[in-house]
Design a protein around this nucleic acid. Structure first.
Length: 596
DNA sequence: TTTAGGG
DNA sequence: CCCTAAA
């Protein structure tokens, strides 16, 4: 590093300033390295201890567990263990008991995610430990909600369906409902386990999410305020599947950051995004690219009104043809393009009931039976087909449900990934927020859907179409989550940059931007700063090592001169008139491959 | 939001 | 280009 910096000044015969170390303005250099602990180790440790505790007695306190988990989260920045729960209470529905295939309105969401690096991780030493780890997380999570959770771990994979619902009541008499069937997948290097959260029906007083079969008695985690049994089964799944990641906050941050990137852009690209996706029972799509996102729709019926909460849409079938020699990256782009093309235009939504598309837009919800077949209701995005059309939206108006949905997660963010629900049927409907975020996947992570963004639109007037604009954004959204396309600086841009830096210096990128790239929305001051950095580097290496469009040597010379000059006169923003002596002193070299 | 640097 | 700690 040091040598690198010196190099910048070295080799330049113009102004050789004594290498005055620039006062680091930021000290983030190594802040977060080294001390981190392998997430896996943490998991294993935590799990191990828990196992012990649970095995020996019920003495371990929730606090202890929590603490440990907290620690791991802290240490493992990149592979956080996120747990989130969104308890909701509904008073309208009274389901009998929950069969797995039964669709149950979503009252709460339990989301859990373990995201260990699939690779690079030391082989886990103890499968069960890992498995427990995941359970623990869930437990902890539930605990926070004030629920008493009992978990039984099982290593067998069947038994997933059992009585999922016993009701549950916390000691405080608070009902905990988890009608959301959650599927959790955890891939722990070699250990593949899957955790399933089953629905807890509110109607039931005691919700039990039992862990089916369990060879390990020690896998019991009592000691919580409420009783919730969560079924757990170990299963293997393909590598692409990643874990569900749930921390809203985390994602929100990321999303926010993403947006930041475009703050210079004249258009509000980051506006809203909706996600594309669909709901359950739509006929299976086999398109290679079909990015089926998890869909899940909340369906509520109450006093003559119907509420819909669409969390995701299924993207229409897409066909993409590419030569075998195409790169995965190109495939991804292709998919994005295809999806964008569909979403880019006017938005059309198709309503599916029991797999059949409802074409008569004038039919009432009541007539279609939607109110009674909520579990087979689905929505699908459609391309600009003549037939489809906004009419479909009238559907919403019909239901007149203005009421904001209860407690929908503020930002149910989910990434669409390539996730093939093991069961591709109605049951899938119950899965909630499954997230697949695997870069290796060819599936393009479609943006998440914010239920709130959609649902509110319900109104009975053209307003509904107001969503359309959002959708436009949607298409951009997918772009947002991507790396900006590379746009090499042209020689003229370089020249403008050099010119600006010569006069403004190297510590006022904002000004440089305004001065020379004010109209170039795609060039942020950070970009300019970066470009300058590369220019300095380029200028200090031999021409043979340079790549890309060659930059005139004279420009590079000016770069070095300016760099040198400002380097020694660093932090002298004021001298408004500091002519760049650089120019003057600049050794006019004719290009040549000197350098060194 | 900007700056400054590492990735 | 991206990501982010600092300022």
């Amino acid at each position: 590093m040091v040598s690198k910096k010196r190099r910048h000044n070295g080799g330049f015969d113009g102004f050789l300033s004594p290498v005055v170390p620039k006062a680091p303005r930021s000290a983030h250099k190594k802040s977060s390295t080294g001390s981190e602990v392998c997430p896996f180790e943490l998991l294993a440790a935590v799990a191990g201890q828990l196992l012990q505790e649970s095995g020996s007695s019920v003495s371990s306190t929730g606090l202890e567990r929590k603490k440990q988990i907290t620690i791991s989260e802290k240490c493992v920045k990149k592979e956080p263990i996120e747990v989130k729960i969104n308890p909701l209470r509904l008073d309208y529905l009274d389901h009998g008991c929950c069969g797995e295939s039964e669709f149950v309105p979503e009252h709460s969401n339990i989301e859990l995610k373990l995201e260990p690096p699939l690779k690079d991780l030391p082989q886990s030493d103890n499968d069960s430990a890992l498995e427990h780890a995941s359970i623990v997380t869930a437990t902890d999570f539930l605990k926070e909600v004030g629920a008493n959770v009992k978990l039984e771990a099982s290593s067998d994979k069947n038994g997933i369906d059992g009585d999922l619902c016993d009701a549950n009541m916390d000691t405080n008499g608070t009902k905990v409902q988890t009608d959301t069937v959650e599927k959790l997948s955890v891939d722990l290097t070699g250990v593949k386990s899957r955790v399933n959260h089953h629905q807890l029906n509110k109607s039931c007083k005691n919700a039990h999410l039992p862990f089916y079969s369990d060879p390990a008695p020690g896998a019991y985690f009592p000691r919580h305020r409420k009783n919730v049994k969560i079924g757990h089964a170990v299963k293997s799944f393909d590598q692409n599947r990643k874990n569900i990641y749930m921390r809203e906050r985390y994602q929100a941050e990321i999303a926010a950051k993403r947006r930041k990137k475009f703050h210079h852009s004249s258009k509000p690209d980051y506006v809203q995004e909706t996600s594309s996706e669909s709901i359950s029972n739509t006929p299976k799509e086999k398109a290679v690219t079909s990015s089926v996102i998890n869909h899940k729709s909340l369906f509520q019926a109450k006093d003559g009104h119907v509420k819909f909460s669409i969390k995701s849409f299924k993207v229409p079938e897409l066909y993409i043809e590419m030569p075998e020699t195409s790169t995965v990256g190109s495939l991804k782009r292709k998919v994005v393009e295809a999806v964008t093309a569909i979403l880019g235009g006017d938005l059309h939504v198709g309503v599916l009931l029991q797999g059949n598309k409802i074409k008569d837009d004038n039919t009432t919800l009541q007539q279609t039976g939607i109110a009674l077949n909520s579990d087979t209701l689905g929505f699908i995005l459609e391309s600009n087909l003549p037939q489809a059309s906004h009419k479909e939206l009238t559907l919403l108006p019909t239901c007149e449900n203005h009421e904001p949905l209860p407690s929908l997660p503020a930002s149910p963010i989910m990434d669409a990934g390539f996730l093939k629900p093991p069961i591709d049927s109605p049951v899938a409907t119950c899965f909630n927020n499954q997230i697949e975020n695997n870069q290796e996947n060819k599936q393009e992570p479609l943006e998440v859907v914010d239920t709130k963004a959609i649902v509110p639109v319900t109104p009975l007037n053209p307003e509904a179409l107001a969503i359309v604009p959002l959708n436009h954004k949607v298409s951009k959204k997918s772009e947002l989550s991507q790396r900006r396309t590379r746009r090499p600086f042209s020689v003229s841009e370089v020249e403008a940059l050099v010119e600006a830096v010569e006069t403004l210096g190297t510590g006022r990128w904002r000004d440089v931007k305004i001065r020379a790239f004010d109209d170039a929305n795609h060039r942020t001051y950070v970009d300019l700063k970066d470009k300058w950095k590369t220019l300095v580097h380029t200028a200090s290496i031999s021409p043979q090592q340079r790549r890309g469009e060659p930059v005139p040597q004279d420009l590079l010379d000016r770069v070095l001169a300016a760099h040198s000059f400002w380097y020694q006169n660093q932090s002298k923003p004021h001298g408004k008139h500091q002519t760049e002596p650089v120019q003057t002193q600049r050794p006019v070299k004719v290009c040549s491959g000197f350098e060194a």
